[in-house]
Amino acid sequence: MGRSDPATRESPWSNAIDVHHHIIPDLYVEELRKIGFASVLPGVDKPEWRVETSLSMMDRQGIRAAVVNVWPGVPAVDAVTGARFARRVNEHLAELVAAHPGRLGAFAVLPLPHLDASLEELAYSADVLGLDGAGLVTNYGGVYVGDLSLDAFHAEAARREIPLFVHPTAPPVDQPAFGLPVSLCEFPFETVRLTAQLLYNRTLDRHPGLRMILSHGGGGMAYYAARLACGPLIRADLAERLPADPIAYLRRLYSDTAMIGDPHAFPAVRSLASPYRILVGSDFPFMPESFSGQGSRYIADHGGFSAEELERIETGNASDLFPRLAKYQ
Rank of each mutant, 00 (worst) to 15 (best):
F286C: 13
A66H: 01
Y249N: 09
A273S: 15
L180V: 10
G219H: 03
V70C: 05
R84C: 00
A65M: 00
A236W: 04
G304D: 03
Q175A: 13
A177N: 15
G231C: 01
A83G: 14
T195P: 06
V173C: 07
V137T: 13
N317K: 06
T138M: 06
E91A: 12
A7V: 07
I63C: 09
A86N: 11
Y28I: 01
T195D: 08
L228N: 02
I234L: 15
I162H: 05
S290I: 13
G36L: 01
G303N: 04
G179L: 04
A158P: 08
Y298G: 08
E309Q: 12
D320K: 14
P288W: 11
L96V: 13
P323T: 04
R241H: 13
D262I: 02
L32N: 11
D205R: 06
I247N: 12
Y140S: 03
L180W: 13
H21E: 14
D127C: 08
S292M: 14
L93Q: 12
G179P: 08
G220V: 02
V109L: 02
F284A: 11
G142C: 07
P188D: 00
G295T: 06
V19F: 07
V143R: 05
T81E: 13
A170D: 15
S39P: 08
A86G: 12
D59L: 06
R193Y: 10
Q175G: 11
D174L: 07
L131H: 04
P181L: 11
Y124L: 03
S290T: 15
D78Q: 09
P75I: 01
A83F: 01
D256L: 02
G281L: 11
A123C: 07
I162T: 12
T195K: 05
M58L: 11
R60I: 05
P275S: 07
E10L: 15
Y298T: 01
P243H: 09
D147Y: 01
P232M: 04
E10G: 15
D5G: 05
S4P: 08
S290V: 14
D245H: 12
D174F: 05
R324V: 02
G303H: 00
F189G: 01
L272W: 12
G281K: 09
F85Q: 09
L110R: 06
I17P: 07
S296H: 12
P163C: 06
L204D: 10
E156L: 07
F286I: 15
T191K: 00
V280A: 14
D151G: 09
N317Y: 04
G261Q: 05
S292D: 15
F37R: 15
G295K: 03
N15P: 00
V192T: 14
F178P: 00
L93K: 06
W71I: 03
Y254G: 04
S14A: 15
S274K: 12
V68K: 00
